[in-house]
Simulated scan of single mutants.
Amino acid sequence: MQAALLRETFLQALSWLAIAISPSSISVFTISIYLLLSILGASITEVKNDAIVAELGKQPPSSTKHSQQPSSSGNLQSFVWIASSVGGVAGNLLGGIFISRFSPQSMFMFFGLLVALQFFITVSVHESSLGLSKNPSIGIKKQLSELSAALRKPEITYSISWFALSYAVVPLLNGTMFIYQTQYLKIDSSVLGISKVFGQETMLLWGIIYNRYLKSISPRKLISAIQATIAFLMISDVLFVRGFYRQMGVLDTLYVVIFSGFLEVLFFFKFLPFTVLLAQLCPQGCEGSIMAFLMSAVALAFIVSGYLGVALASYIKITGSDFSGLSLGLVIQASCTLLPIFWSSCIPEYVKTKDKHKD
């Protein structure tokens, strides 16, 4: 596992540093290849990290005999979520400061060096310190067999199918909204950067709130509530496009920072309760494979969602200079977001556990 993480981190660092030292006449195609390799490395690393968290979340603590319950109640997932959000806030703030002071190549060099530092930190961490179970006799065929057996469980298959479809059926208009805000409303890019920082701060707050107050709520009810909230805020975007908030005296920049930043990350809020649920549903030893399969399904769902968004924007004739159909597109997007709630029965209400001890 560690060797794979090292390879993907090295791939990221190499791609970013290659862009940084390339001449200014570098072709768009070459940059696209470098960025594709970087995204590939980041994606695989993220999947492996999620797999490690899922597996560690099922490891029972061995320090005291009073702590007999596995960490499947979501403590570890919440902690990782909070740590990731802190990193997101710091990264966006750093990027916002650098983007107005340094050239793009200097920024690629700086962040490439940061990824290289991450590579060397990963090298210094011994895999045995994670306490992961090792079984060198398990090959790809054995892993695929265990994954197939896990997916034959209806509660796992139905849950993953619902989660992936909840993204796939929504035609995303994020790119269209970005063009509308920057090209039509002439909102400065620094404002959008601040909105991303605000979004990461809300993700940090969400991790804390979930860990302290919401873990006992039914996953089905909590995820359905998040889905409904996403649709509600999309209707708020309709009012924004039609100038309703502007007439009330609310600045466009203020709306973009708060509501747009919050809506952008709200799509990911249901990841936390769902991964906690899935870790509880997974058979012992198959957590990593199931989590990797989930992330692959979600990635495919986002691709489908993006294509649907492009098709919708084309159908209602949204162009770079004509956004008259954007409000209708947002209404359709919100309606599609509500659809998964009607088959939310695919998500289990609760997961029965044998051990009733408190953490």
Rank of each mutant, 00 (worst) to 15 (best):
C286K: 13
K356W: 08
E264N: 15
S63H: 13
I33C: 09
S137N: 13
D322W: 08
L37E: 05
L114H: 09
S78Y: 03
K141P: 00
P104M: 00
L239H: 08
L192Y: 07
N92A: 15
L56N: 03
F268L: 13
K358D: 11
Q68F: 00
N211F: 11
G96M: 12
V47D: 11
W162Q: 02
S327H: 09
T182R: 08
F259K: 10
S78A: 09
G74Q: 00
I230W: 01
V47L: 15
F79G: 13
V298E: 04
G261M: 05
F271E: 14
T45N: 12
F178W: 05
G261Q: 01
V265R: 10
S345Y: 14
A297M: 10
A313I: 02
F267Q: 14
I303C: 12
A149V: 08
K134C: 06
Q12K: 10
S133N: 12
S137F: 09
V170C: 03
P154L: 09
A90C: 06
L147C: 04
V257W: 09
G175N: 11
I99G: 03
L93Q: 05
H126V: 04
G207A: 06
Q59F: 03
L93G: 06
K352E: 15
G57M: 06
I21H: 11
N211P: 00
G193C: 04
A297T: 06
A54G: 08
D50T: 08
D237R: 11
S100N: 13
V298Y: 04
P171W: 00
S190I: 12
A4L: 14
L165M: 10
I82N: 07
G88R: 03
Y350T: 10
K358P: 00
F178D: 00
A164G: 04
F198T: 06
Y350M: 10
G74I: 07
T157V: 06
T202V: 11
T176Y: 10
I194C: 08
F120W: 10
I99S: 12
G87H: 02
S321Y: 13
Y180T: 04
P70C: 07
S166H: 02
A313E: 01
A299S: 15
F79M: 13
S218Y: 02
G309R: 01
T275M: 14
F163S: 01
V276R: 05
T9W: 08
L36W: 11
L185T: 01
L254I: 12
P171Q: 04
V298F: 07
W343Y: 15
A20Q: 09
F110G: 12
I82H: 09
V89S: 06
S103W: 09
S124F: 12
L254Q: 13
P154D: 04
F119P: 08
I31M: 14
F178M: 14
Y245I: 08
A42I: 12
L339W: 01
N92Q: 15
G95W: 11
L328Y: 13
Y255T: 03
A164I: 03
S321H: 15
V276P: 05
W206Q: 03
S324R: 07
W16V: 08
Y34D: 00
S24G: 15
I226S: 03
I290N: 05
I303P: 00
A313V: 01
S63W: 11
L192D: 05
K196S: 14
F108C: 06
S128A: 10
A90Y: 01
N135W: 00
G325Y: 01
A279I: 04
S43T: 13
A228F: 12
S161Y: 07
V310M: 14
V250H: 07
P104K: 01
L272V: 02
F108Q: 05
F110L: 11
M107D: 04
